[in-house]
Simulated scan of single mutants.
Amino acid sequence: MERDYKDIVAELKRAFPKDTVKFRSDNHRPYIPNQVYTDRVESATESRWNLEIKELEINVPHRYVKSIVQVQIDVHFRDGYGFAVIPGDPSKEPSNINTAVDKAVNEAFLTALDSYQMGWRDLAPYKMKDWAGNPALKHLLDHPEPDSQTAVVQSRAIVDRHCLVCSKVLTGDEWDLLGQVPNLNRDKMTYCFDHLPNHLKRKIDKDNIHQFEIRTQLD
């Protein structure tokens, strides 16, 4: 029996497993990989969906690509847009154009799925100072689905990792937070959150710091 459209949408909104959210290496912002979204759409619709590129503008002189795509599920559809800069000199490195096209199309795909609130429950804890802090969206944090794992979890203890200052065993969340400090060797510069130097804390995304503090309050 084929799924009803409203059941498909409910499945798209469902929270992903714990640790699905990743952090970009350049700015440490949270994101969910494109492949995760594609897999969810494929499973939720039982392969009854289609992605169509409605518009693709490749502007070589000004080095950008703009894309508009449409995600169709049965008779319903959502549009999304994406934009990407073509790096370097396209005349010398034409393959960079293909890279920019892929990036613009992928971004448009994610924009379309974002209109289904896909991934909102997972990203909300990291966006408290952005859209998730709005009282109208508080339900994303206050009412997690009983069958799903959300990003708000209690801190996890790990072994053989001790703070250089107080010798306290680090929690898993403290260890993960250290991994978000650019160019920090966690094996040599191991600190608990309380003793992490302020100049290192400032290098971590503020949303991630806030989410860490939320988790520690649950302990």
Rank of each mutant, 00 (worst) to 15 (best):
S25M: 06
P90A: 14
A44M: 01
N27G: 07
G82Y: 02
T150D: 00
F212P: 12
K129V: 05
L56H: 05
V65K: 00
P61I: 06
L196G: 08
N98M: 05
Q154V: 12
H195M: 12
L137E: 05
D176N: 08
L200W: 10
H162F: 03
A132H: 02
P17E: 03
W49Q: 02
F23C: 05
L178Q: 11
K188P: 01
H210V: 07
S95F: 10
F109I: 08
N134E: 15
R40V: 01
R24L: 12
Q211P: 00
P146N: 02
S47L: 06
D7F: 01
V36H: 01
V169C: 09
S67M: 10
V85D: 11
V181M: 08
T216L: 05
I204C: 06
K6M: 13
Q211V: 04
D4I: 06
E46I: 11
R14T: 07
T111F: 12
L200E: 11
I53Y: 15
I214V: 13
I73P: 09
V169F: 04
I209A: 15
K201H: 08
I32T: 04
R48L: 10
V71S: 00
V69F: 03
I68M: 02
P182A: 09
D173K: 07
L56P: 14
V41M: 07
F77L: 06
I97C: 12
N185H: 09
V159C: 03
R24V: 15
D205L: 13
H76W: 01
M128G: 12
D26C: 03
